[in-house]
């Protein structure tokens, strides 16, 4: 990585906002960050820690309080808005469903920084638009009005617009918010693919921890105080940054599974024997019902999960008594 020139570099960047006359409130900083072409970077962090402020500052919508942002080696302050627009495109949370826009017109607005004074599209503009449409799979919506799109479709269309802007860096502010699970996965997969195939750098903020861990090349992890850790997802798990960032009562990040535990450790202990998917989900159900799972075989409450043809059966061994159940529900009720 060191040999590659960074696309965007911040040095001593302090972000924040105006909180009254001549007063500023710093949210985070100083930050020294680097962004490289072809990377997908996920910005994670709890609500209100300053993710949007960071993205807005990097994209030039908001001034930094201190420090410098360099875009391809040039200080962003010295670039005109039109020049920045050729380098950075955005997908924001702003509402765009207005003004009688149809999907094709909206996507072609992406050519805005490249087109002439009246905004007439040339053949090469149209070709780039078509490529963006193809890459994002938005071809089937083209004739529709923007306000008839679902949230997931709308996000894809906004991504297509950013692609049409044809910038080396795309920044997305919470693109997965309001989307259902399949759309979220689809979008993240699409972004991952785009970063690899088009060699664009993609920076996005999200709350989808598990998806981010799977697709991100880099994670920028912000904690409530504005502290930011950057690194490979696995690095951040191993060095305890995740546990620290989401440190809140009753919530623990489980480095073993890469997920958060919502349940407090149960008072009763139980041991589960048996393998496979059925045993895995049985453990989950037991934890939800307030048990802690013990790996010791000598517990006086043991359940064995076994197969009976196509179906699973659950057998409770308690003080040398055995009872067998054919459904998980019956088994849980009996405990």
């Amino acid at each position: 990585m060191a040999a590659q020139k960074s696309l965007l570099h911040t040095s001593g960047l302090t972000i924040g906002y105006q909180s009254g006359r001549n007063k500023t409130k710093a949210v985070s900083g100083p930050l020294d960050l680097d962004l490289y072409a072809g990377q997908l970077i996920c910005l994670l962090g709890p609500n209100g820690c300053g993710k949007s402020t960071l993205l807005r500052t990097i994209s030039g919508l908001q001034h930094p309080l201190k420090g410098e942002i360099e875009l391809e080696g040039k200080n962003i302050k010295q670039l005109r808005p039109a020049q920045v627009a050729k380098k950075i495109s955005l997908v924001l949370t702003d509402n765009v469903r207005s003004g009688n826009l149809d999907v094709y017109s909206l996507i072609s607005l992406g050519r805005y920084p490249h087109s002439g004074w009246l905004g007439v599209l040339t053949a090469s503009d149209k070709q780039i638009i078509n490529q963006a449409v193809e890459a994002t799979g938005t071809g089937e919506f083209l004739g529709r009005k923007v306000d008839s799109l679902s949230d997931g479709e709308c996000q894809k269309v906004m991504l297509a617009r950013a692609m049409a802007q044809d910038t080396p860096l795309i920044i997305l502010d919470e693109p997965t918010a309001h989307l259902d699970l399949p759309s979220r996965i689809q979008l993240m997969r699409l972004l991952h693919q785009l970063a690899k195939e088009t060699n664009k750098a993609i920076l996005l903020s999200t709350h989808e921890l598990d998806l981010a861990l799977q697709v991100a090349d880099q994670i920028w992890l912000m904690s409530r105080g504005g502290h930011l850790d950057a690194g490979l997802p696995e690095e951040l798990i191993l060095n305890g940054a995740f546990q620290h960032a989401f440190d809140k009562d009753g919530i623990a990040f489980d480095a073993a599974t890469g997920t958060f535990n919502i349940h407090n450790a149960g008072k009763k202990t139980i041991s589960v024997t048996g393998d496979g998917i059925a045993a895995f989900w049985t453990k989950k159900a037991l934890i939800r019902s307030g048990f802690s799972i013990s790996s010791a075989e000598e517990e006086n409450l043991v359940v064995s999960v076994s197969r009976d043809g196509e179906d699973s059966i659950w057998t409770i061994h308690h003080n040398s008594e055995q009872t067998t159940y054919t459904t998980l529900c019956e088994f849980l009720n009996a405990l």
Partner: peptide, 10 residues
């Protein structure tokens, strides 16, 4: 598309 998008397009 609103002020923010307009600004982001230069």
């Amino acid at each position: 598309l609103g002020d923010n998008y307009a600004r982001s397009m230069g």
